[in-house]
Design a protein around this nucleic acid. Structure first.
Lengths: 121, 121
DNA sequence: CTGGATCCCCGATGATACTG
DNA sequence: CAGTATCATCGGGGATCCAG
């Protein structure tokens, strides 16, 4: 990794870090993935429960997002073939490892709101 | 906070937490915001540098994202009225407080890649 | 160099209806 | 209940050109 041309570009470990961040953002792309995961942090939830609690999401999009998350191994889909058909989603081990992230998210959201308050808005 | 109707919905502190997360996700919406912030964590950068380093972003979108971030007070725009006009972006205090988040992102990306490796893919 | 304005297109999203 | 299929719509995002 020579310094090649210009002022500041990311090289070596730093570029690696950026790639890692991009990877993560790619997997968690869209506005819903983390919102869904945050809900599942606390307890497994059914499709309809998610539809209720993830504010603003539509059924189709929820389906897609859940499929994406399952494909990436972040959540597990449990199907109970009872009469009215019950599907429950829960975090996989991998998904659970995102708790750090959702914690950061929640923490920052709170802090940010506090900042906005005292800023006079 | 009574338990109101059904099985599991989020109430009280938990709902608050969810709202905080949603707020954060809203401010950081889009695939680029966090990628940009991650770059600026290390040093202030110029428009052209960001255009080079944020892989895949186009000029127009970069402009928009930077404006959004500035509006939300996450970054600061420095204009040097030299002859060829130089604009530098850096994190504000608020923006710097997102470092925790980008750290989590990077960390998780690395860990996730490691998991994928050992999973056999 | 920065970045706004314009044109254009594809893919994401919502509503509705239908299946298992 | 848990989705899927279809259709119409909308806006994000790329390319290019131009202005400060």
């Amino acid at each position: 990794m020579q310094q090649d041309s210009a002022d500041h570009s990311f090289t070596g470990a730093c570029a690696h870090r950026m790639r890692a961040i991009d990877d993560t953002l790619d997997i968690l792309s869209g506005k819903w993935k983390l919102a869904i995961i945050a809900r599942l942090c606390h307890q497994p939830m059914r499709y309809s429960a998610l539809l209720r609690d993830v504010t603003g999401i539509s059924g189709k999009v929820l389906s897609r997002e859940l499929q994406d998350l399952e494909t990436n191994g972040l959540i597990v889909r449990h199907v109970a073939t009872s009469k009215p058909l019950t599907v429950t989603y829960s975090l996989s081990e991998t998904g659970r490892s995102l708790t750090t992230l959702t914690d950061s998210l929640a923490e920052w959201g709170l802090a940010h709101r506090a900042r906005m308050m005292q800023a006079g808005n």
